[in-house]
Simulated scan of single mutants.
Amino acid sequence: MSTRTMSPVLLIGGSGHVGARAARALRRLHPDLRIAIGGRDGRRAAAVAAEVGGPTTAVTVDVQRSDLGLEPGASFSAIVTLVKDESSNALKRAQADGVPYIAFSDFVSEIGPLVAHYVARPTRAPVLMLGHTFGGTATLAALHLAQELQSVDAIAIAAVVGADDHGGPASSADFERLRQAGEAALVLDDGRWTWLRGEAATRRVVDAGGAAHVGQALPLSDVVSLAAATDARSIRTDMAARDRAAGGAGPRTELIVEVSGRRRDGSGARLRYDIIDADNLSRLSAYGAVIATERLLGLAGGPPVGPGLYNPESVLDPASVIARLEELGARVRRTPA
């Protein structure tokens, strides 16, 4: 199907920090794709739509309403939720319409409702769980490195962000929800699933420039994706903030992916990617959402994805994701860890 005739892609939260960047990236990759910027504030959504340009419209969306507050008869080619879909109304709408759905803001402990809705209607729509570091980009980068190894022992993912980088209101709401729940971080530690809290959840993270930071483990879905895709016995994902006194307030985001294991000749190896973007954490997140969206719709990497429940590694090719990140402007550096 031509992007000119395809129904719009609905970005719920499209006027937010991640959503606006996702819309701009989609427009850059697919100039003729119809995009609907969905937000609670219609004027703000309209402003983003005007900035994005091309066949972009604005719609007012309320995820607390069963009809999402949309006009009767509105149709979309995919529904991408860049905010927490607390009532599962956006998911229900995607299943009713039989179009791809992306869940972007679910922590690893919050996927129960989504899974239950899929199990109840498994043939209705493709449902992608994307509560991963930067929209799945970290998981795919780790798997790209793991392809070089005969066996994988450990995978460590870290995001290093500016001291004042909270990723916008939607991301701040996610972390506030995490704080109120007293959530621990799920890690795989020497073959055992473990929930970490407090000091036990911290680790030392060294960024691309050699500076050390204190990372805090997060309950993101990379750990379960990578445990299922590899034989690693230790997996975790952390976030660290750069020190403000050392220039930590600037708009720079680093994704550090380290994979250790054995090569096919039996020798040990520690491999590392540094993926760097000159913006706050919202843009790398947006890139991940966009790469997943175009894949589900069959706009890149193969035909449209059929109904099913997916993690990003189920539908995306690791090498293609790395190439797409570079095309979008992220700097990718490969070094021994």
Results as ranks from 00 to 15, higher is better:
Ser2Phe: 09
Thr3Leu: 15
Leu11Ser: 11
Val18Lys: 05
Gly19Asp: 00
Ala20Ser: 13
Arg21Thr: 11
Ala22Gly: 05
Ala25Thr: 04
Arg27Asn: 14
Pro31Ser: 11
Ile35Thr: 06
Gly42Arg: 05
Arg43Lys: 02
Ala46Trp: 00
Val48Gly: 02
Val48Lys: 06
Glu51Tyr: 09
Glu51Thr: 01
Thr56Arg: 03
Thr56Leu: 11
Asp62Ile: 02
Val63Pro: 00
Gln64Asp: 12
Ser66Phe: 01
Gly69Pro: 02
Leu70Phe: 06
Leu70Tyr: 06
Ser75Cys: 15
Ser75Arg: 09
Ser77Met: 08
Val80Glu: 07
Leu82Gln: 15
Leu82Gly: 13
Asp85Pro: 13
Glu86Ala: 06
Glu86Ile: 12
Leu91Pro: 13
Lys92Gly: 14
Ala96Tyr: 07
Ala96Pro: 09
Pro100Phe: 00
Ala103Leu: 06
Ser105Cys: 08
Glu110Ser: 14
Val115Gly: 03
His117Gln: 14
Pro122Glu: 10
Arg124Ile: 08
Met129Gly: 02
Leu130Ser: 09
Leu130Pro: 01
Gly135Glu: 08
Gly135Asn: 09
Ala142His: 06
Leu145Phe: 03
Leu149Val: 00
Gln150Trp: 04
Ile157Tyr: 00
Val160Gly: 00
Asp164Phe: 00
His166Pro: 09
His166Thr: 06
Gly167Ser: 15
Gly167Arg: 05
Arg179Ala: 15
Ala184Phe: 14
Ala184Cys: 07
Leu188Val: 08
Gly191Phe: 10
Arg192Asn: 13
Arg204His: 11
Arg204Gly: 07
Asp207Thr: 00
Gln216Trp: 12
Ser225Pro: 03
Leu226Met: 07
Ala232Phe: 07
Arg236Pro: 12
Ala240His: 03
Ala245Glu: 15
Gly247Met: 02
Arg252Leu: 12
Glu254Pro: 15
Glu254Val: 01
Ile256Glu: 08
Val257Ala: 02
Ser260Asp: 15
Arg262Leu: 12
Arg263Tyr: 04
Asp265Asn: 07
Gly268Asp: 13
Ala269Tyr: 08
Leu271Trp: 01
Tyr273Cys: 11
Ile275Val: 04
Ile275Leu: 13
Ile276Cys: 14
Ala278Pro: 10
Asn280Asp: 12
Leu281Ala: 10
Tyr287Ala: 11
Ala289Phe: 10
Val290Trp: 01
Glu294Met: 05
Leu296Trp: 01
Leu297Tyr: 06
Leu299Glu: 03
Pro304Lys: 00
Pro304Trp: 00
Val305Phe: 04
Tyr310Arg: 11
Leu316Trp: 09
Ala319Ile: 02
Ala319Asn: 14
Ala319Asp: 09
Val321Gly: 08
Ile322Asn: 02
